[in-house]
Amino acid sequence: MALLELKKVTKVYQIGTVAVHALRGIDLTVEKNEYLSVMGPSGSGKSTLMNVIGCLDTPTSGTYILDGKTVHNDEKKAAENSTNGMLSDDDLAYVRNQKIGFVFQTFNLLPRITALHNVELPLIYAGFHKKERIEMAKEALRKVNLIDRMHHQPNELSGGQRQRVAIARALVNNPSIILADEPTGNLDSKTSQEIMQLLDELQAAGNTIVLVTHETDIANHAHRVVHFLDGLIASDEQTLKGKG
């Protein structure tokens, strides 16, 4: 079974009296350990897709199944005339916590706490005990090669190091999928290469990665590239790497 399955997913935003169709019926499956890039001009719907996949937002219609869990199913919803086909806010939070690891363009670390504490945060919400948490957070920081900086605050770290902390935070709870939204957008090209290398290694180690970018050479790190245009998938093809 596919790790991630989207069927006829639409998303309509109501802005004033105007309905904006951000997604117009997306079908997409991502297998376990796949390495997928999503490309497209701004306004093409790729950010909305990431929000839907990341359970920050729910589709207007369609079906979304993540790792065997039905996040949204409007057939079921219509049939049972209940909220059964939809997860509650708290359930969505739980899915985000357990199955998703976000990596953002702007890192999104909490500024006044240490790297270690930042990495610990998802585990706090998952309900781990402090001792366990610290072990797991250290392990994640080791994976991104930042264990020697664990007591530094984000403002004492370089951009690349901050993004590594963010990646460690995404990894720490062993998520089903890592969602990286323009992870190199705020980094210089050398650091970008280092971060991409790290993501490549993580994928090689068995993680599933979905990457949003508008840079072709970044996108080409993935094995498969999906192009978005006007809320629809315009193309879906293997990269050179994917063809192996």
Binding site: D89, D90, A93, R96, Q98, L110, P122, Y125
Partner: peptide, 14 residues
Amino acid sequence: REIGIRKSIGAKKR
């Protein structure tokens, strides 16, 4: 923003 970050990594409303 902090609230957004916390929510994105799994903080519930409560």
